[in-house]
């Protein structure tokens, strides 16, 4: 009986401890959801009284910030298309072709990617972009992001494709398909879950990045949301909490929607074509 009692209290203690940790992490999220609807929001947590959309009205009237959201979308979608298409084709080739030393190539690429997209490479990247005359263009931001994310994306995707049996494409080719047909009809649909992972990851990375667009862009009408969010700071550098909260909620919505969409539409549903 005593040991049962001990078990009982252990479980209660454990639950209380995890609940406390949970609350600790939940508080900022609760603030994040409540503050945008509170016209008198401060850094402290409080329930909106009255519940109002005034903060959003003010944010919607800030043209710079609204254009920032649009710019973020342009840069993220542009980057994602380049990364998705490039990584799929490249990692498929790296996985299926008999190039000697291809795993060495992949590891070197991965090593470079951590340098290229890191702050250490900011000066050379700026000089290169300046040299080819792309400073202050969205294309520059998209290209630099794509270049920085591609190696890691290829690395992830190559691993995924390696785990998919070659016999899918082989059976298609024996049945009369050209390599291109076999790729689009058979390989691509099977690889799709891996591509989705890479695409979501790339989107989130670009969406949240501050430094690269901040350095490569000059005109305010091209700045993405991650930079435009600073328009909700006063001249002295203190945040206008009410507007910042409302804008942050808007800023995070596309990522949340993307996650929901992906888990609804895709997900690892396809199994059973290969008998192990």
């Amino acid at each position: 009986m005593r040991s049962y009692l001990g078990l009982y209290f252990t479980r209660i203690g454990f639950s209380v401890a995890t609940a406390l940790i949970g609350v600790f992490f939940a508080l900022p999220l609760v603030w994040f959801i409540f503050a945008p609807f509170n016209p008198r929001a401060e850094l402290g947590l409080s329930i909106p009284e009255p519940f109002s959309l005034a903060n959003f009205e003010a944010v919607f009237q800030n043209g710079f910030a609204m254009r920032g959201l649009w710019n973020s979308l342009v840069q993220s979608v542009g980057g994602v298309i380049l990364v998705g298409a490039g990584a799929t084709l490249a990692s498929y080739a790296l996985s299926r072709s008999p190039i000697p030393g291809k795993s060495v190539i992949t590891y070197i690429l991965l090593l470079f990617s951590s340098v290229v997209s890191g702050s250490a490479a900011m000066v050379p990247i700026f000089l290169i972009i300046n040299g080819i005359g792309l400073i202050d263009t969205q294309i520059a931001v998209i290209l630099v992001f794509a270049g920085g994310l591609l190696p890691t994306a290829m690395f992830i995707l190559r691993d995924f494709i390696d785990s998919i049996p070659k016999s899918y494409e082989e059976s298609a080719m024996v049945a009369g398909a050209s390599p291109v047909q076999a790729f689009f009809d058979v390989a691509l649909p099977v690889i799709r879950p891996g591509i989705v992972v890479v695409v979501v990851w790339a989107f989130v990375s670009i969406w949240g990045s501050f430094l690269i667009p901040f350095i490569l862009l000059r005109s305010s009408e091209k700045m993405p949301a991650s930079v435009a969010i600073y328009s909700f700071y006063s001249e002295a550098g203190t945040p206008i909490v009410t507007l910042l909260a409302a804008y942050s909620l808007l800023y995070s919505l596309p990522v949340v929607i993307l996650y929901l969409f992906v888990s609804w539409k895709f997900g690892f549903r396809f199994f059973g074509g290969i008998k192990a």
Partner: peptide, 20 residues
């Protein structure tokens, strides 16, 4: 010759049915 031009059929050990 490429497999597609050989006029052959093949049954694979793992069946290689297209899961989608």
């Amino acid at each position: 010759l490429h497999p597609k031009d050989r006029k052959i059929s093949m049954v694979f050990q793992d069946y290689a049915l297209y899961p989608h």
